[in-house]
Structures are given as structure tokens and as C-alpha cells.
Design a protein around this nucleic acid. Structure first.
Length: 291
DNA sequence: ATGGCTGAGTTGCTCAGA
């Protein structure tokens, strides 16, 4: 089973990139963030194209900002918008459209767009930390849970192109990293970093100043998987190709293949094209990023 | 300390992103 997560930065603007990507990578489950559409508008612009490709859709939008979605070809059951006790912003009682989850292929999969935090002394930063704490508290069965999305936190300094320049800014502060570590306490693992412990792997590059070309990015789009899943990860990589070319999102997709067969066979996994699979039982170590 | 892109709506400007 292939699961992908992608902050598309407006799915409407990204349609010319998104549909070809979907047809090339053929993920079974897709988590989208920053769709920036209402549910009705999402259905208008993508409903037919996704139905043709066999995807069931759960979109949780709010118009011009935020918006998350789950697309699945392996079941989409018990869809939940948000999570219990999710704080709101700016009105504490009004939730933003930043989380949707469902059971797909036997796993509870979340598509998450964690609040940015803006500045460490801001109420938005406090909101970010409370949002993450409520998310962690609401996970019913960590072992079969996958948290996918734009976490807006770089787990370590290795996930930032220039750690010194980020000191005192959001995405790298200790409380944010501690909030992320709380998922680790539930047994959830960062599957891309586990697979590539020493590699330079980013998932986001600022549009400005040729940052992508210079590979000055951050790894803030994560897939955190529970204990029943981590031993079955056949591949985990960043699809850098999707960040290239015309009108890209500023984020690249993160893709994870999970072995669903009991004998260790990779099953329906389609490897990245630059890495022809060497099948025959042995796990193939696919690259961390694909250009 | 930079706001050098991009997207959205309140358009020819502001806000947000990270």
C-alpha cells in the first residue's frame, strides 16, 4: 500500500501538476494540505477526475485558507473532521480545517496541516502547541495510526538547511520539538528519517531566491507511523521531481510504501522510476528523494 | 533584520505562508 502526503498550496492552482503526479505515482492513499477550497469547490474542480481514478474522497475545507483531504482506493471509513478538543483560532471556539482522518486499508490515517506558529511569543504559537497536544491526546490506537502532513516542525537541526539562522524562530524551538516527540512516546516513528538517518532530506523549499535550486530547504512534511506499521515500511522518500518545473507547490510529496503481504513481498508497490525494483524477497532500499 | 515568491481576497493593495 502506497501512502503519500502533499501540501499542494492551493489544489486549484496545482491541478496541472497534481493529476499527472497522481497518474505517475499511483498512491493508494493521498493526504492533501492547503487545498484552499470549500468542500463544494473541491468537488467541482476535482470530484470527477478523482472518481474516474477510483478514489473515494474526504475533503474538509474552509474556503480560501487551510483545507485538508484524504483520497483512498483502499477504503475510506469512519471519516472524522478535526479531532477531540481541537482548539480554534482566532476564536477559541471556531476550529480551522486542518485535520481529517479515516480508516484506509485497516489503518487510521490523518491528513494534518499543523498551525504555523508565526512567532514564538505569539498567541498563534501557543495555539500550535495546544493543537498538537490535543491531537496526541486524541489518538485512540497509536499502533495502527499514521500521522501524515505538514507538521510545520523540523524534528532536528539536520532537517533545516541552516540551523543557526533559525534559532529563535518557529519550526525549530524546543517546545515544538517536544510536542513532536510526544508522538514518539506513543510509539509513532518518523519513517523517512528512520530509513535515511544520515541523509540531507528536505520536503519544503521557499519559492524565493532560488532556494530549491540550491537545495536550501527544510523537512517539515512528515509521516509518523505506529508500531504495527514501522516494520513493514518498504520505501520512504521525498518526491523532489514534483517540486521542479512549472508552477510547483513549495512543498514536495512524501511517499511511503507499506508491505501488506505476510511473506515480505512488496505487493502492489510501484517503485520510483529511476530505481527499477530488484524483486525476489530482499527489501530494496529505494532512494530518499527522487528527482 | 532582511521578505528577494506565490496564492487568495479585501485586488493594483494586504495578509499569510515558514
Amino acid at each position: 500500500m502506497r501512502i503519500a502526503t502533499w501540501n499542494v498550496n492551493s489544489v486549484k492552482q496545482r491541478i496541472p501538476r497534481f493529476l499527472p503526479w497522481l497518474d505517475e505515482r499511483r498512491p493508494d492513499v493521498v493526504c492533501l494540505q492547503e487545498t484552499k477550497l470549500s468542500d463544494e469547490a473541491f468537488d467541482e474542480v476535482l470530484g470527477e477526475a478523482l472518481a474516474e481514478r477510483g478514489y473515494a474522497v474526504a475533503h474538509h475545507g474552509q474556503g480560501q485558507w487551510n483545507g485538508v483531504a484524504l483520497l483512498s482506493r483502499v477504503g475510506l471509513d469512519d471519516v472524522v473532521n478535526g479531532f477531540p478538543d481541537m482548539p480554534g483560532y482566532p476564536d477559541p471556539g471556531t476550529a480551522e480545517a486542518r485535520a481529517v482522518s479515516a480508516v484506509c486499508g485497516g489503518l487510521r490515517i490523518y491528513s494534518l496541516y499543523v498551525p504555523n506558529g508565526r512567532e514564538p511569543d505569539s498567541d498563534h504559537y501557543d495555539y500550535k502547541l495546544r493543537w498538537l497536544a490535543a491531537l496526541a491526546a486524541g489518538i485512540a490506537d497509536p499502533a495502527t495510526t499514521m500521522l501524515c502532513g505538514d507538521m510545520n516542525i523540523a524534528p532536528t537541526d539536520a532537517d533545516v538547511f541552516d540551523p543557526a539562522s533559525f534559532v529563535g524562530h518557529t519550526h525549530v524551538t524546543d517546545p515544538e520539538r517536544a510536542a513532536l516527540a510526544a508522538f514518539g512516546d506513543l510509539g509513532l516513528r518518523d519513517v523517512v528519517r528512520d530509513r535515511w538517518p544520515d541523509e540531507r532530506v528536505f520536503s519544503y523549499w521557499d519559492y524565493r531566491a532560488g532556494m530549491f535550486h540550491k537545495d536550501l530547504g527544510m523537512r517539515i512534511d512528515l509521516i509518523l507511523a505506529g508500531a504495527d506499521i514501522t516494520g513493514r515500511v518498504a520505501a520512504a522518500w521525498v518526491d523532489r521531481k514534483a517540486r521542479k518545473g512549472t508552477k510547483p507547490s513549495d512543498h514536495a510529496p512524501v511517499v511511503v510504501d507499506i508491505d501488506t503481504a505476510p511473506d515480505g513481498d512488496v505487493g502492489p508497490v510501484v517503485p520510483p522510476p529511476s530505481n527499477p525494483a530488484k524483486r525476489g524477497g530482499a527489501t530494496v532500499k529505494l532512494p530518499h528523494s527522487v528527482d
